[in-house]
């Protein structure tokens, strides 16, 4: 089952000297039940493709589907609804709200869907407990380590049980131990047969966690290469 796909996607941004083309007909399939890494040099268009696949950017041309829904056929409101229901987001900078507790931060997707904050926070507790944060539910982000904050962000991405989880450099701000823990969690998330995890990364240390590694360059998807032995994880770094 394909959770998300992009076919011949072109993405242009307005620039001072006319439009700047970032994606040149990129195509990618993200199968459910696995963890896909999107790798490539800086500026090759990885994050742009991730944004297009998650519906936060509208492609200039090409077709994008998420869980069978064609994004180009959806208006803005429908795209927001799709993101709210079907997609979980994990950001490099966590983007937790500093004045909310861990449980409240994790509950935000439920709140945007209309649930009260107190009820949504209760619903987020089991997710946080599964991620090993049961003792930190009432802590503010500044009272948590970087790894713990990223786990809260993962809980926020999972609390509404999305079909597609997109992650932008989830380990970039973490040390090796915390990064390893986070990747093991994401690996377990991706093990669900009806869920896909797509990660954009520069961090070659996490290649061992992938089911698929897709390479990009100059706005195009070059192809797939086999992941290194999974057990290597953070210890067996694979270099681009």
């Amino acid at each position: 089952m394909i959770a998300a796909s992009a076919r011949d996607v072109v993405m242009e941004f307005a620039g001072g000297d006319g439009p700047v083309r970032v994606l040149h007909g990129a195509s990618l399939e993200v199968p459910a039940g696995g963890l896909t890494l999107l790798v490539g040099p800086s500026g090759c268009g990885k994050t742009t493709l991730l944004s297009v696949l998650s519906g936060t950017l509208a492609a200039t041309a090409g077709e994008v589907e998420v869980m069978g829904e064609r994004l180009s056929a959806l208006d803005d409101a429908a795209r927001v609804r799709l993101r709210r229901r079907r997609i979980g987001f994990i950001f490099q900078q966590y983007n937790l709200l500093p004045s909310l507790t861990a449980a409240e931060n994790a509950a935000i997707p439920l709140v945007t869907a209309g649930m009260k904050l107190s009820e949504a926070s209760r619903r987020a507790v089991p997710v946080l407990q599964r991620l090993g944060l049961g003792a930190h539910l009432d802590r503010l982000p500044r009272q948590l380590s970087g790894g713990q904050q990223q786990r809260v962000a993962i809980a926020r991405a999972l609390v509404h049980e999305p079909s597609l989880v997109v992650c932008d450099e989830p380990t970039a701000a973490l040390d090796a131990k915390a990064g390893h823990t986070v990747m093991e969690l994401l690996r377990s998330v991706a093990a669900a047969p009806d869920r896909a995890v797509l990660i954009v990364t520069h961090d070659s240390r996490i290649h061992g966690f992938a089911d698929r590694i897709v390479e990009m360059e100059d706005g195009r998807v070059l192809g797939e290469r086999p992941p290194p032995s999974r057990n290597d994880g953070y210890q067996g770094a694979v270099h681009d």
């Binding site: 998650s54 936060t56 409101a77 927001v80 609804r81 993101r83 987001f89 935000i108 945007t112």
Partner: peptide, 16 residues
């Protein structure tokens, strides 16, 4: 702005 952007990405509408 970044927090609001995150909320919008997660699924908050402009009305919210």
């Amino acid at each position: 702005l970044r927090q609001f952007g995150a909320l919008k990405a997660i699924g908050a509408t402009n009305g919210q």
